[in-house]
Write a protein that binds this DNA or RNA. Structure first.
Lengths: 198, 198, 198, 198
DNA sequence: CATGAATGAGTTTTCATTCAT
DNA sequence: GATGAATGAAAACTCATTCAT
C-alpha cells in the first residue's frame, strides 16, 4: 500500500473534502445555493450528511470555500505570466485566451462563479478577492483608454462588454448551443476586440 | 357596492394580484426563487399569505406568471414596430434602443428574467416564449450573416456578445457602476455594433 | 358561541400559547431543558411542532418565558400584602405560608424554577427577576439579624437554610415522600424558625 | 515496556479511565447530562472520543459510574467511624462535619450528585445506593424522634431540612455567595440543630 | 373573498456511537 | 489498545400550503 499522500495533510487535501467540494460545485451551479439541500451534496459526494460538517462549519462556509477556490484559480489563470509591459492588444489576447481556456476546462466552476445571489452568503474574504480582480482589470483598461487604444468610453462599459460576452459564451457552451473550441474562442476574441478598440 | 371593474376580469387585473406580482418580482430578483419565502411576498404585497394562493396555485406558478409577463413585455417591446424590412443596422439600432430603454425603466424585471435556475421551476409555456424570441433573433442574425453584413461566425456567437453585453450593462446599472442613460446606451450600441459588423 | 375572550389578544392569552407553556413546564420540570425535545412539547401541547415557533422564537425563548412567568408569580405571591412593618416573625410566617401554599398548588412550577443549568439559557430579564427577589429577601433578613432577632450569622447562611429546606420539602412532595398539607407546612415553619431565631 | 500497573487492573484504575471520569464530572456538573456532548468529555479528558467507549459502554453508563463512585464516597465519608452508639447530637455533629468537609473538598462532585434528572438515566444500582443511604438516615432520625430528642414531626420533614440546608449551602459555596470554612460549617450546624431538636 | 394561524414535511445542524487504521 | 474520522438518526428550526373563520 504505497501512500501517495506525503505530508500530514488533515483537511486541506483530503479525499472527502475534495469530493464534497466537487459535489457542491456541480449542484450549486445547477440548482443554486438555496435550491441545493446539504444531504443532496452529501449523497453526490458519497459521504454521510454529518461528514460535510466535519470539513465546513456550515453550508455558507462551504459555498465560500468553493467561491474562493475557483475565483482564485481564475485570477491566477489570468495573472500568471500576464504581459503587463506588452501592448494592450496582446494583454487582451492573453486575458481572453486564458479565461476562455479555463472556462472550457472548468465550465461548471464558471457557471458557479457567475451565480446570482452570491451576495447573500459570501463573506468578506470572498468579496475581497472579487473586488481585487475587478480593480486590476479596471486599471489596465482605463490605461488603455487613456492611451487612446480603446474607445473613449467608460472603462466599466468596456468591461461589461468583455465580461458579459464571455459569460454568455460560457453559458452558451454549457447549454450546448456553442462549443468553446479554439476557433470559436479566436473568433469571439476578434469580435470583442472590435468592440473595444478605437 | 359599485364595482369599478368593467369586464369580467376576476383575477387578471385585480389590485391584489398586481401587488403580489410586484412584490414577488422585487423579492425574486433580489433573493432568488428559493431564497424567497412566500409569507415574505405576502408581507411585501400587504396581503395575507393565503391570498397568494387564491391567485396562483403555487409558488412555482407565481414565478412562471411573472416570467411570462415580463418576457412577453420584453418581446413586445422589441417586436413592436420592428423594421423587418429595413437594413440590419437599423434593426439592430431598434433592438438595442428598445431593449436598453426597457431595462432602464424596468431594471428589476430584467434582473429577474436573467436569474439562473429558472430551469428548475419554469414550465413549458415559459420556456416556449423564451425559445420563440431566441429563434426570431437567430433568424434575423443568421440572415444578416449570410448577407455578409455581420462577421462570418456562428449566429450564436454574435447573439452571445449582444445579449451578454446587454445583461452585463444592466447588471452594472443595478449595482450602480454604470448609468443607463441615453449616451451610455448609444456608446454601448456603437461598441457592440463594431463587434458584430463585418 | 359566547366568546369569553373580549380584547384583541393575539398571543398573550391564546389557548395554544397556554397549552405550549403548560406542556413545556411539565416536560422541562421532569426532563430538564436539554433533555426535552421540542416535538415532545408539541405533542404534549397537542399542536404542530411548527406552531411553537409562531409563539416563541426559539426553545430558549420558551424556557425564558416560562421562567419569568412563574418567577414573577412566585414573587407576587410572596410580596402581595407583605407585612413590611410587622415584626419579623410575622413576616417569616407570611413568607413561609405563601411560598408553601404556592408550591402545594404549583409543584411543577417550583420544580422547574429550581432546575440546575438555567444559567446556560436564561436571558438578562430572567436573571434580573431572580436577582431582585433575592436582594429583597436578603435586605429583610439582614435587618432582622441586626435587630438581634435572628442568629448572628451571615444572612446568606440563613437564606440557604430557609430556601434549601423549602426546596427539599417541595421535592419531597413531588416524590411522594411528604405531603404539603397545612399541618406539615406549619410544622416545617416551626422547625425552620428555630433554625433562624436567636 | 515496563508496566507499572501492579494488579490485574485493566480498567478500574487506568489513567485514562480516571481522566474520563474527572472530565465528565466537571462537565456534567456544569452543563448537565444532556447538555454535555461526549466528544467534549473526550477533549477535556485528552483522549480520543472512541476511547471513552472502551471504558464505558455508553454515555449513560459513564454517568452511572460517576454517580455511584461519588455517592459511595459520600456514603463512606458519612458512615466511616459513625458513632452509632453515641447520643444523637454527636451523631448529627459527625454527619454534618463529614458531609460539609466532603463538600468543601469535592464541590463539583456534590454539584453533580444533586443534579436533577438523574432519574432519566440512572440505573438500578445507582438508585439502590441512594435508597440505602436515605434508609439508614431515616432510621437514625426516626429513632431520635421516638426518643423525644428531635421534634415530633415526620422524619422526612427533618431530613428535608437537613439535606436541603446542606445542599443550599454547597450551592451558595459554588456560586461564591458563601465560603464553606469551618466557622460557617459550625454555625450552620448550630442553626440546623435548633431546627431539629426538641 | 380574504385572511393568517396552524401544520408537517423538509431544512440545516448536532452528536452518540462505530470502526478502519 | 487507542484513535478520531465517519456516520445517520434526531435535534432545532423554516416554510409552502391549507383551512376555519
Amino acid at each position: 500500500m504505497t501512500q501517495t499522500v506525503p505530508r500530514g495533510e488533515r483537511h486541506e487535501g483530503s479525499d472527502k473534502r475534495e469530493a464534497i467540494l466537487d459535489a457542491a460545485l456541480a449542484l450549486f451551479a445547477e440548482r443554486g445555493f438555496y435550491g441545493t439541500a446539504v444531504p443532496l451534496v452529501a449523497d453526490k459526494a458519497k459521504v454521510g450528511a454529518g461528514t460535510i460538517y466535519r470539513y465546513f462549519p456550515s453550508k455558507e462556509a462551504l459555498a465560500n470555500a468553493l467561491f474562493q477556490r475557483h475565483k482564485r484559480a481564475l485570477g491566477e489563470t489570468i495573472l500568471r505570466d500576464f504581459p503587463f509591459d506588452a501592448p494592450f492588444r496582446e494583454q487582451f489576447h492573453h486575458f481572453w485566451t486564458r479565461v476562455c481556456r479555463y472556462a472550457a476546462e472548468n465550465p461548471v466552476a464558471l457557471q458557479f462563479l457567475e451565480l446570482h445571489h452570491h451576495t447573500s452568503y459570501l463573506d468578506e474574504t470572498s468579496r475581497a478577492i472579487e473586488v481585487q480582480l475587478l480593480g486590476t482589470a479596471k486599471g489596465v483598461i482605463a490605461q488603455a483608454v487613456s492611451q487612446q487604444i480603446l474607445k473613449p468610453v467608460a472603462p466599466e462599459l468596456l468591461m461589461a462588454i468583455v465580461w458579459g460576452s464571455f459569460r454568455a459564451l460560457v453559458q452558451g457552451g454549457c447549454e450546448g448551443l456553442l462549443r468553446l473550441d479554439d476557433e470559436t474562442i479566436a473568433q469571439a476574441e476578434a469580435c470583442v476586440w472590435e468592440a473595444l478598440r478605437r
